[in-house]
């Protein structure tokens, strides 16, 4: 392990701690929001936005996606595309059958 490598890791650790604090704060925030009893549609959107930000922090920094090689990003992009299909299309087939709640 070279000297510069160790220095590199030290800088990383600062980032990890910052991310950890952000995650803890966001957890408290999302719980706090739930006590405000916002309209359901709005509450779901807000909670999912917060969760996505948190997930992005974990994936980006703890899992190093932010500096990861392209091949892994491509795999995840493919995965995300199919995930999108899996979420949207079954829901779409419900449109013909009745009102789409909560929109």
């Amino acid at each position: 392990m070279s000297e510069s490598d160790v220095e590199h890791v030290r800088q990383h650790i600062k980032v990890y701690v910052t991310v950890f604090v952000a995650l803890a704060v966001l957890t408290v925030v999302t719980v706090g929001i739930s006590y405000l009893h916002l309209p359901t549609g709005f509450a779901i959107t807000l909670a999912m936005v917060v969760a996505t930000v948190k997930a992005g922090l974990v994936a980006g920094y703890f899992m190093h996606l932010i500096s990861e090689e392209k091949v892994i990003l491509w795999v995840l992009l493919l995965c995300a595309a199919f995930l999108f299909v899996l979420f949207i299309l079954p829901l779409g087939t419900q449109i013909g059958n009745g009102p789409l709640w909560p929109l």
Partner: peptide
């Protein structure tokens, strides 16, 4: 092992609001 562990954490980040808060 860490990547797997973070992923499990990441799943919970979505599970928690979905089940407890909404």
């Amino acid at each position: 092992a860490g990547l797997y562990w973070h992923f499990v954490d990441l799943v919970w980040i979505f599970l928690f609001p979905t089940l407890y808060l909404l």
